[in-house]
């Protein structure tokens, strides 16, 4: 390992070509990384680590419930919140770009407030304040929580979508208008489809982030029906006195997010061909 990392004699080093030196440097980096990794493997107390973080029996006990109940709820929350966020986000992006000043102001205030306030506080506000203020509950078992998350994320998405719309060349709108389309028609059929193509990567980030933030919804109280992955794992930690359920939860999250980002990457590559 060490003889790979060190240059083969000083006299020779001077005569190395630029490419040889780059290669040597790279081998050095690999070497150091391997040494550090090897050291970690040797010094780690695997027995205790496994006991605390990966007890096979407890790990096995997490399934199938963690997937069939908790992950299912996580996905339900995510889909609902994302749909709300997308619809509101598009609406506020358009208001933000409106020529009518009060619309713009309204959008700016909305975006600043919900982007600036921690999601947890917004969830509390929607979950507890609305029933008190309006004397009515947001309908549905998941309603209030998803509405709150949808509102928080719509503030981020409004800015993302606005940037996407602004990135579509002005000539596109002019061409559409010159063909007799109304402003609304031109936006809906020409500008917004192109804007969405532009904002797919940042929207994917927001979706992934939303998946994880559904774990905040437990503050509104959970039942067996509405438990999601993180809350499920934490309850299990309390029951088993082991960290293993959290490791299982992490793997379940990855099993959702990684395929998702891969699929989006493929879709994006396909869309780029048309551009």
């Amino acid at each position: 390992m060490t003889d790979v990392a060190s240059p083969p004699g000083r006299a020779g080093a001077r005569r190395l070509t630029r490419r040889q030196r780059a290669r040597l440097r790279r081998l050095g980096v690999y070497g150091v990384t391997l040494v550090v990794a090897a050291w970690l493997v040797v010094v780690t107390d695997w027995g205790r680590l496994q006991e605390a973080f990966f007890d096979p029996t407890i790990f096995g006990d997490q399934f199938p419930d963690m997937v069939t109940r908790a992950a299912r709820n996580t996905i339900t929350f995510t889909v609902l919140s994302f749909a709300i966020a997308l619809a509101l986000g598009l609406m506020f992006a358009l208001l933000r770009l409106s020529p009518i000043r009060p619309y713009r102001w309204f959008a700016v205030v909305y975006i600043e407030v919900f982007r600036g306030v921690p999601a947890l506080i917004t969830i509390f506000a929607i979950g507890f304040a609305i029933p008190i203020a309006l004397g009515t509950r947001v309908p549905g078992r998941y309603g209030a929580g998803c509405l709150a998350l949808g509102i928080v994320y719509s503030a981020y998405m409004a800015e993302t979508i606005r940037a996407g719309i602004e990135a579509v060349p002005r000539g596109q709108l002019e061409a559409a208008r010159s063909l007799g389309m109304t402003q609304a028609r031109a936006m809906a059929t020409i500008v917004i489809p192109q804007a969405f193509r532009i904002v797919i990567p940042p929207l994917t980030n927001e979706l992934v982030s939303l998946i994880k933030d559904t774990s905040l919804l437990y503050v509104l109280g959970t039942t067996a029906d509405t438990i999601e992955i993180t809350k499920f794992a934490r309850d299990e930690v309390g029951r088993t006195f082991s960290i293993t359920p959290l490791v299982a939860a992490a793997l379940v999250y990855l099993a959702i997010t990684v395929p998702l980002t891969r699929v989006v990457a493929v879709l994006e590559a396909r869309g780029r061909r048309a551009r």
């Binding site: 060349p169 000539g171 596109q172 002019e174 061409a175 559409a176 010159s178 063909l179 007799g180 193509r197």
Partner: peptide, 15 residues
């Protein structure tokens, strides 16, 4: 609708 317009930058719809 009764006036066709052709632009310097073509402005075809890329999508």
């Amino acid at each position: 609708r009764r006036i066709g317009m052709v632009f310097q930058q073509f402005n075809l719809f890329p999508h």
